[in-house]
Design a protein around this nucleic acid. Structure first.
Lengths: 228, 228
DNA sequence: GTCTATAGGAAGATAGAC
DNA sequence: GTCTATCTTCCTATAGAC
């Protein structure tokens, strides 16, 4: 979970342990810079001149490595999507077989939060700019979104089947609300106000509470008691 | 809660029930268009030409009403912030005196969600572009943010004091996670996949579950069991 | 109040020398 | 591979007629 997130980049020619060529490192500096800006300023706010400045090269030099501004941003988003999914899958795979469905759900959200906060500006950028992407880029990443969607859906469904998740919750809405909670974190999280570990621990507890079947004693009336 | 959100706009000359002049209506069309685009495309993605197109007037005409593009967007954000806070306060004021601290918290989040989803593109725009705003605009809205911050902090604190909110949760992180969940909703919510009322009901239940002191039976180990 | 025409400048992208 | 110089397009904003 602490390995270099880009050794598995779609563009990496040589995989395992092989030392990057200078060209690859420059290309990567560009992507790193773009991911950083994209996650902070959004799609239209990400300027090639600023990417070049942070990556410490000239604007034309950026175009030596990429065909267009959009091509850079599309690759950032693709890497981010993949990274987020891979980290969640890796965290799930590391769980002992006796882990409950709820353990798996909490671990998945915790891993996703860890990714967008610490592991990868790419993932943060991908999550925070989804709606802003031009339609052609969105279309090309659709199959990828579907894969993540199915994973999250499956996790929650397993929890419901096991009787560990509150069956009165709309599974889709609950899933999206919790993903939103986590995807929004880069907006407010500040290392000076609390460590990543504490924040991740909070989200674990919050998710577990939120999804667990409540004891009737603590509830007042039906879920729809007052519509607003 | 269904009154026109802009009769209380900072720029409205005549308040209560007085009919708007044509000039005010045009001004408002511009703001409406800007709010819509801003909430979808972010600060840098909002173009004056597109505002003009949606508001059905020419670009120079927009500049007859506003000094600059930034002036439009700043007013949208200010209105949005105010609207969101006012709607939450109104919902809280409408609660019966016997409402518990947890009732108040759920009602507040429900009202906020209702605002960003249904009542106001202004509120959605304000919430979703906070981090993208130029620093001068951010500075001018800071006092406003503080007022909301204090309200939310107070609601949670009251819940903890009343013994209704899980004291093991970090209050700030929990508050920000739940606000994120709600602010993120415009990204995925779709009227065809579920009504606003159902979605609001889900968030009520989710928030109540998330913050309620859990029964020890449903927990496994300490909150920090596995650090990831 | 609303428009057509246009100034002025920023940003994406390319040419071509080194 | 990297740069300086430049082209082109798009966008903010203004001038000035109606």
């Amino acid at each position: 979970m602490t390995t270099n997130p880009l050794t598995t980049s779609p563009t990496a020619r040589h995989q395992a342990g092989r030392r990057e060529r200078k060209s690859d490192r420059t290309r990567r500096r560009i992507l790193d810079a773009a991911a950083d800006i994209l996650s902070r300023k959004g799609f239209d706010g990400t300027r090639v001149a600023e990417i070049a400045e942070i990556a410490q090269l000239s604007v034309p030099n950026v175009y030596y490595y990429f065909d267009s501004r959009e091509a850079i941003l599309e690759e950032v988003v693709n890497i981010g999507d993949r990274l987020a999914l891979d980290h969640v899958k890796a965290a799930l795979a590391a769980l002992p077989p006796e882990a409950t469905a709820m353990d798996r759900i909490c671990t998945a959200f915790a891993a996703h939060l860890d990714t967008v906060l610490k592991q990868s500006a790419y993932a943060a950028a991908a999550m925070r700019t989804m709606a802003q992407l031009p339609s052609d880029i969105r279309a090309r990443q659709l199959h990828h979104q579907r894969e993540s969607g199915e994973m999250w859906r499956g996790l929650i469904a397993a929890g419901v089947e096991a009787g560990e998740v509150d069956p009165d919750l709309d599974p889709r809405a609950a899933r999206m609300f919790l993903l939103g909670a986590v995807n929004w974190a880069p907006e407010w999280w500040n290392p000076e106000r609390g460590s990543i570990e504490d924040t991740v621990a909070t989200v674990r507890r919050l998710v577990r509470n939120a999804l667990t079947v409540p004891t009737s004693a603590t509830r007042t009336g039906s879920p729809n008691e007052s519509a607003m």
